[in-house]
């Protein structure tokens, strides 16, 4: 008992020190992350329009309006399609690129840099290049399609293809990131697992991939999917520069709708409500990632 009493003091001091040490991070987290999110949440419950002198509590009016807003649903649907197309393509191509680059010898560094370049470059400049690539008459894409005898289109101007053209740009942009993450994952696979597999009787490329590479890449895969999903959810700059949500809302995506409502249309509170939906979706992806990683983290 005396001992317990004696240790209580230091333990409390330790707890205090811990709190003090965590305090700066805690304050910063509120200031930089949670605070603004809460502020946006509160704003979404008002009727405030940008620059207006008065503000009124409006309850869930903005959310009700969103529920009946055709553009919001188009935007959500487009975003889901965009993510649904670009994430699997990015992950698959990123994995193939990583495995291919891992297997080449001398030019590995060059290829890695080449693939990573789009991730590091500003999309604003790159978007102009893509605009030219997709140009209906002189663009590279149509020239290739013509040469192959495939049907051509005015990709960015046609409502049936514009979203997929943007998704292709998104894949191009995120491919390098997926590839680098996969390469890190590949490097982390102990080589003796492949050797053990060879001793156990499997040395074909498919068996090696299926028995070791793929399962060992599990954590990297979850991470890559989550990162590319979040990045795809955030698609904005290509839309802003290349299509402005058009033609006829065919490339209207969540972040673009949010910026347009909040800034162009000056509907700040409504924009805040869309932001909350956006935050919620992003949060859902992050949670899914955490849960999946936790479940798969039992690897030695």
């Amino acid at each position: 008992m005396a001992e317990a009493k004696g240790t209580l003091g230091p333990r409390r001091a330790e707890a205090l020190a811990g709190t003090l040490l965590a305090l700066p991070a805690f304050i910063l987290m509120w200031l930089m992350l949670l605070g603004p999110a809460v502020a946006v949440g509160l704003l979404s419950l008002t009727d405030w329009n940008f620059g207006e002198p008065q503000i009124r509590f409006a309850g869930l009016e903005n959310y009700a309006e969103m529920w009946g807003d055709r553009v919001f649903w188009i935007s959500l649907r487009n975003t889901v399609i965009y993510v649904g197309v670009s994430v699997p393509a990015t992950v698959l191509l990123g994995l193939l690129a990583a495995i291919a680059i891992e297997s080449v010898g001398p030019l590995k560094g060059f290829y890695r840099a080449a693939y990573f370049l789009p991730v590091a470059s500003t999309l604003l400049a790159m978007a102009l290049v893509w605009e030219f690539m997709f140009h209906p008459s002189v663009g590279f894409v149509n020239q290739v399609f013509r040469a192959l005898g495939l049907p051509t289109a005015d990709w960015l101007q046609n409502p049936d293809t514009a979203l997929f053209a943007l998704a292709a740009i998104g894949v191009w942009q995120n491919l390098g990131l997926a590839m680098v993450l996969f390469m890190a994952g590949l490097k982390a696979i102990p080589p003796d697992l492949y050797e053990a597999l060879a001793m156990d009787g499997a040395d074909g490329a498919w068996e090696r991939f299926r028995r070791v590479t793929w399962p060992m890449l599990g954590p990297a895969l979850v991470f890559v999917v989550a990162i590319t999903a979040i990045r795809s959810f955030q698609v904005f700059d290509t839309v802003q520069v290349l299509t402005e949500g058009g033609p006829s809302k065919s490339t209207e995506v969540l972040l673009f709708t949010m910026v347009q409502q909040g800034f162009t249309f000056l509907r700040s509170a409504y924009g805040a409500a869309i932001t909350m939906v956006f935050l919620l979706l992003t949060l859902a992806i992050t949670l899914a990632q955490t849960v999946l990683l936790d479940r798969r983290a039992h690897y030695g």
Binding site: P190, D192, L193, P215, G218, G300
Partner: peptide, 8 residues
């Protein structure tokens, strides 16, 4: 030496 067991 590392046993090289398949962790998954």
């Amino acid at each position: 030496q590392s046993y090289a067991l398949y962790p998954y």
